[in-house]
């Protein structure tokens, strides 16, 4: 009891980042993620860190590039329209193999959309978001506790693989308050011999750059990067399975949709329907294994999403189209109700 505090999801991200050793935050206000910036503005000056409200999202992500080049843990956060603006900078981070954390507290789109929760940036996040061949590690929390834990994990993975990690939350996750324990182990940053920390005239200077004009060299860089991505796929895929052992109907859902779905699975079980839930925690790399396994014993997989059907494509690929995959969704800032998901389960079971 004593070690827990009551936090908003956005605040939990900010405090967890500080615990992870992040002392540089650059951001720009946008609902529903503004509390991340507001919290950092209060805390950073007290611990000798830097909070800077940049003149734009584009400026903020390029400040992230600068600090990441110097080898320090750094982050920015925004919500959907702001993440689009950061797209160019995220591509540059990938091209320069820089570790950083980007938080997206999604709202409904496209365009300015609305300020209510959404999961419609799934494609944008898992396919890269900016131009060029690259991936981000995408982490999808479904509780305030996970908002904190996956923020720490994001910094660790970013450093380990020299990649951008993204915490992909939504407006509900950002705004809701839950008890949180902030007592977790943090792996300190590894040595970064590539960082631009000053040569002291003792070594050759380092260059951090995403420009590579010799095609043979650029090809080599791209191939090496994708070999690293393969390691991430092998080592870092995360998911939760709930009541899947004997399931005949499987729900695929992440974030807030998974919480709603868990309620529906419990209710379905009470009705005697063998339902289960697969909750991807990493959206990239996507957890193929549990879906491949599910395809051998379930009748149908229902993808529950706050979008027009984005993750459903990965669910189909992972289950190798061996089983029917259907969509249960709400959009525009609406969240599927437990009743809606239960209805979909009942329908699939008939």
């Amino acid at each position: 009891m004593a070690d827990k505090v009551l936090m908003k999801g956005n605040e939990a991200i900010a405090e967890a980042a500080i615990k992870a050793g992040c002392r540089h935050y650059f951001g720009y206000p946008i609902t529903p993620q503004t509390e991340v910036a507001a919290y950092m503005a209060k805390r950073m000056p007290k611990i000798g860190g830097t909070f800077l409200q940049a003149e734009s999202e584009i400026a903020a992500i390029n400040m992230v590039y600068g600090v990441a080049s110097a080898g320090l843990r750094v982050m920015t956060s925004s919500s959907s329209p702001g993440i689009s603006l950061k797209g160019e900078g995220i591509s540059y981070l990938a091209g320069a193999d820089l570790p950083a954390l980007v938080v997206n507290v999604q709202r409904g789109g496209p365009g300015l959309g609305g300020i209510q929760p959404s999961q419609s940036d799934y494609f944008q996040s898992t396919r890269g978001g900016g131009h060029g061949d690259y991936h981000m590690i995408v982490l999808a929390p479904s509780s305030v506790q996970e908002m904190a834990a996956l923020t720490v994990k994001g910094f660790e993975l970013a450093d380990k693989y020299r990649m951008t990690a993204m915490v992909l939350a939504d407006g509900t996750m950002g705004q809701m308050m839950e008890p949180v324990s902030l007592d977790f182990e943090v792996t300190p940053p590894p040595e970064k011999p590539w960082a631009t920390t000053g040569t002291e005239m003792k070594r050759k200077h380092n260059i951090v750059n995403s420009l590579s004009l010799v095609p043979e060299e650029l090809e080599k860089l791209n191939i090496a990067r994708f070999e690293r991505y393969e390691l991430v796929k092998q080592n870092e895929t995360m998911y939760e399975e709930y009541m899947m052992d004997d399931a005949e109907i499987a729900i695929a859902a992440f974030g807030i949709a998974a919480r709603v779905s868990k309620n529906a699975v419990n209710e379905a079980r009470k009705m005697g329907i063998k339902a289960g839930l697969i909750r991807p925690i990493t959206l990239w790399p996507f957890p193929d294994a549990p879906f491949k396994k599910a395809a051998t014993h379930v009748k149908e997989i229902i993808s529950v999403e706050l979008n027009m059907g984005q993750m459903i494509e990965d669910v189909r690929l992972a289950s190798e189209c061996k089983v029917k995959v259907s969509l249960c969704n709400r959009v525009g800032g609406m969240i599927p109700s437990p009743e809606q998901v239960l209805d979909a389960i009942v329908k699939a079971s008939k």
């Binding site: 009891m1 004593a2 827990k4 505090v5 009551l6 308050m177 839950e178 008890p179």
Partner: peptide, 14 residues
Amino acid sequence: SNLGVETTADVVLS
């Protein structure tokens, strides 16, 4: 003073 859904009498008394 409360811990949301985890609020108990002890949480308040403390």
